[in-house]
Design a protein around this nucleic acid. Structure first.
Lengths: 351, 351
DNA sequence: TTGAAAGCGCTAACAT
DNA sequence: ATGTTAGCGCTTTCAA
C-alpha cells in the first residue's frame, strides 16, 4: 500500500467514531464528550492527520484566505511603509489561521481586466485595502459581499471599516513639542490636503497652535502641493522661506518625505537645522534616520496598523454581518536632532 | 431565486454540453473542437463564470499556491532586501496564476511545533526558501515531495535547485573598479565566511587581485567576524587600520552593511573616504544611499532573484520531476562617491 | 470529440 | 453526544 496521507475517514476508522464526530473535534465544537475528544485528538496526532484546506474550503465555502490589496505605486516605493503594514497583517492573520494573499491594482480607475484573481476565484473570505485607492475597488469588494477593512484611508461615502493612524494626536504631539522648546513661529508644510490622513494632520496642527495661543500665518502654511513626496517638501520650503514677512523658527511637515525635502532646501539656503529652524516630520520612515540632522518625527506603528486591520477583518468574517468600525492607532513622538530638543521618546496615550 | 454564483454545471446547461467538456475548455485541453470551445467561452463570459479555487483544488489535488519561507530575522530586518525578493516572487507567481503564501520560521533548528501550516494542510504546490536557513527546513519540504527552490543560499549536501547572486562576478567588478582607479593596496572585510554568498565574494575578490597582479595581504584581510552586520564591519575596520604594516588605500566589504560599519570607523579615525581610502560594498541596500559619502557598491537585482525562483519553481511543478538547476543572477557595479571614481553604472554581462 | 459517473476530503443538516 | 448522508464544484478516468 502506497503511503497515502490520512484523511478524516482514517481517523474515524481508527477511533471507531463517525467522520462527523471527527469534524466536530476538528472545528472545536462544544457538543463532544471530553473522553471522545481526547481519543480523537490522540488518533489525529498518531496518524499525523491534518485536514486539507481545499477540502474544508469546498465543503464550508470558505477559503481561509485574506486578500490584501495595495496600489502599484505604494507597492513599489522604496520606503517600506506599506510593506511593514502588510507584514503586520500577515503575522496577525497567521495567528488566526488565515493566509494572506497579496495583490496590487492600478492606482487609477479600475480596469475590469485586472480584477484581483482571488476575487474572481472566490479565494478570500475578506479584504484589507491599504492606502489611498480609487473607491471603485472598494465597491468591487463590497459588491461581492466580502468584509472589507481599509488602512490609512477612508471614504466617508462608503460604509466600510477602517483603521486610521491617530493623525490628530500626532500633530498635537508635534506642536506641543515645538511649543515646549519655545517656538511661537511655526510653519506648516501640508502636501496633498486631499488625502484623509494629511487633512487630519493639518487639523491637528491648527488645533495645537490654537491650544498654545499661537497664530497660524497663511504665508507659513503651504497647502498647495499636489503630492506628498520629497520634491513637494523641497518646493514648499522654498515658497515658505521666500516669504517677505519674516520666517518661522520651526516647521511641521505633514510627513517625513516632505520634511526631508524641506531639509534639502534649507541646506541649499544655508539655513541651519535645528539652530535656525526646528523641523518635525510624521511617519518615522527609515530615511529619516539617515538624514543629517536626523529627523524628529511622529512614529507610526506600521505593523500594528496591519495587525489591527487583520483582527478587525477576522471579527467581521466571524460575525457574518457587515458592521462598521473605525479604529485609531496610537502614535509616539520621537525626538532626534532636527528639532533641537532633548533626545527622548514620548509615548502617547493609547487612542 | 437568490443570486447564486454560477458553477460549471450552469455553463454545461447553457451550452447543452457536459460538465467534463467545459472542464476540458477551462483547462486548455487540446481535444475539443474549435466550435465547441468558442461556444463554451462565450457562455462562460456571459455567465461571468469563474471556477472556484477550492473546488479545483480538491478535485485535482493542487492548491495553486506557492509557499515562501523566510527566517524570522530576515523577515524582520529594517533593510527590505528579502522583502524585495518576496515581491519579485509574488509578481512573477501571479503571472503564472499562482498565489504566494508567506511564512517565517525559526532561525535555528526547527521545532516541530511550528511547521508552516501550509505544509501540514497541503496548501502549497511548491516552496521557495530565501536566505540562509537551517537545512532541516529544506529536508522538511523535500520529505513531503514538494519542489523546492532556494534563493541566495545553497546546501551542497541537499539536491535542490537554487538561485544565486553572481557573487564572483560582482567581486571581480569591484576589484576591477578599484584597480582601474590605481589602487594596488586593497583590503577585504569579509564577515561571516560560512555564508555561501560571502564565501563566493571572497573567492571572487582573491581571483580579482590575482588577475591584477595584486598581492592579498593577510593583515588586510579580515575574515574573523561571526556575522555580516554593521557592527562587524566597524570592528573589522578597527582591526584593519590598527595594523602596523601600513594601510590599504582601498577596501572591499563583502556587503553594504559591513561597508557602512567600516565607514563609521573610518570617520572616527579621521580617515577620509574616498580621499584616504576608497570603499566598495556589495548588495546595494537602501542605506548605502543615505550615508556620506554615498556607497559605491555591487547592485543586486533583488526582485529579479525572487522572480527567477518563481519561474524555476513553476517549471518544477509542471514537470513533476525533481530536476536540479542552479541559476545565477547578474549584478551591476554602481559607482557613487565612496570609491572616488567617476560616477557611472557599469552593467555586467548576463550571467 | 464528447458524455457519464465516480470521486477528491471535508462540512452540515438531520436523525438517532 | 454521536451517526448518516447529501452535497460543495470541480477533475478525471472510462465509455461511447
Amino acid at each position: 500500500m502506497a503511503t497515502r496521507r490520512p484523511t478524516i475517514r482514517d481517523v474515524a476508522k481508527k477511533t471507531g467514531l463517525s467522520v462527523s464526530t471527527i469534524s466536530l473535534v476538528l472545528n472545536e465544537q462544544e457538543n463532544v464528550s471530553d473522553e471522545t475528544r481526547r481519543r480523537v485528538k490522540k488518533a489525529i496526532s498518531e496518524l499525523k492527520y491534518h485536514p486539507r484546506r481545499s477540502a474544508r474550503g469546498l465543503a464550508s465555502q470558505t477559503s481561509g484566505n485574506i486578500g490584501f490589496i495595495l496600489t502599484e505605486d505604494h507597492f513599489l516605493q522604496a520606503e517600506p511603509f506599506y510593506t511593514k503594514v502588510f507584514l503586520g497583517t500577515e503575522f496577525e492573520a497567521r495567528r488566526h489561521q488565515y493566509y494572506v494573499l497579496l495583490t496590487t491594482v492600478d492606482k487609477g480607475r479600475k480596469s475590469n481586466r485586472d480584477i484581483p484573481r482571488f476575487l474572481l476565484e472566490h479565494n478570500v473570505d475578506g479584504i484589507i485595502i491599504a492606502g489611498r485607492i480609487s473607491p471603485g475597488w472598494i465597491d468591487e469588494c463590497l459588491s461581492r459581499d466580502l468584509p472589507v477593512v481599509l488602512i490609512d484611508f477612508e471614504e466617508p461615502s462608503r460604509r466600510v471599516s477602517t483603521v486610521m493612524i491617530d493623525n490628530r494626536a500626532g500633530a498635537l504631539l508635534a506642536v506641543d513639542h515645538l511649543a515646549s522648546l519655545g517656538h511661537a513661529r511655526i510653519g506648516l508644510i501640508a502636501g496633498d490636503i486631499g488625502h484623509p490622513s494629511i487633512a487630519e494632520r493639518i487639523a491637528g496642527f491648527a488645533a495645537g497652535l490654537k491650544a498654545h495661543g499661537i497664530e497660524m500665518r497663511p504665508e507659513w502654511t503651504i497647502t498647495d502641493q499636489p503630492e506628498t513626496g520629497i520634491e513637494n517638501g523641497a518646493t514648499a520650503a522654498r515658497k515658505l522661506f521666500s516669504s517677505v514677512n519674516g520666517r518661522p523658527t520651526a516647521i511641521f511637515a505633514a510627513n517625513d518625505a516632505m520634511a526631508i525635502g524641506c531639509l534639502q532646501t534649507l541646506k541649499e539656503l544655508k539655513i541651519a537645522v535645528p539652530r535656525d529652524v526646528a523641523l518635525v516630520g510624521f511617519d518615522d520612515i527609515e530615511a529619516g534616520l539617515h538624514v543629517e540632522p536626523r529627523l524628529t518625527t511622529i512614529h507610526v506603528h506600521k505593523e500594528e496598523l496591519g495587525a489591527i486591520a487583520a483582527r478587525r477583518l477576522v471579527e467581521l468574517i466571524a460575525a457574518g454581518s457587515p458592521s462598521v468600525t473605525r479604529t485609531t492607532a496610537a502614535v509616539d513622538l520621537v525626538v532626534r536632532e532636527s528639532s533641537g530638543g532633548p533626545i527622548t521618546v514620548t509615548v502617547s496615550k493609547r487612542a
